[in-house]
């Protein structure tokens, strides 16, 4: 029945703090990953800031959720992409981003994959549904 598994993509386009969208959106991803769905996540625009490693939310007085991104692969969310132009526009590179897990065999650290707008568009065209946060 593998062909019946629906592809569902999440887009994250907002900054991680200031509003709750990205945090509560992360909760949706973790739940949805437990279901029979082919989940992918793409970070675009200010959404790329959510992936920046080394965030400290203590002064904001909020819990923060960067650590949860570190276990995305453990939750079987390994299709995590980030828009190349959005990164570049903000002076960030892949090295600035959080590690989302490690490769089971090589134990190599996995970071979100940098893709361009055409690749994102191609992935979007394949989705059954897209949820934005």
């Amino acid at each position: 029945m593998a062909e019946d598994i629906k592809k569902i993509m999440f887009t994250v386009r907002k900054g991680p703090h200031g509003t709750i969208y990205v945090y509560e959106g992360l909760e949706v991803k973790l739940i949805m990953a437990a279901y029979d769905a082919d989940i992918s996540v793409v970070f675009i625009d200010d959404g790329v800031y959510a992936l920046k490693a080394g965030q400290n939310t203590k002064e904001l007085g909020i819990k923060g959720f960067e650590a949860t991104y570190g276990v995305l692969v453990d939750y079987e969310i390994s299709k995590v992409f980030v828009d190349k132009k959005s990164l570049e526009d903000r002076g960030l590179t892949q090295d600035d981003l959080v590690v989302i897990g490690e490769d089971e065999e090589t134990e190599e650290e996995i970071r979100p994959k940098v893709v361009d707008a055409d690749e994102i568009a191609a992935m979007m065209a394949e989705q059954h549904n897209i949820l934005c946060f």
Binding site: I8, E27, V28, I31, M32, Y35, A37, H128, N129, L131
Partner: peptide, 17 residues
Amino acid sequence: GLGQLTMMAIEAERMVI
């Protein structure tokens, strides 16, 4: 729970937000 949102996303042809 969010499982209900999941089922809607899977079963509906369009999810409009």
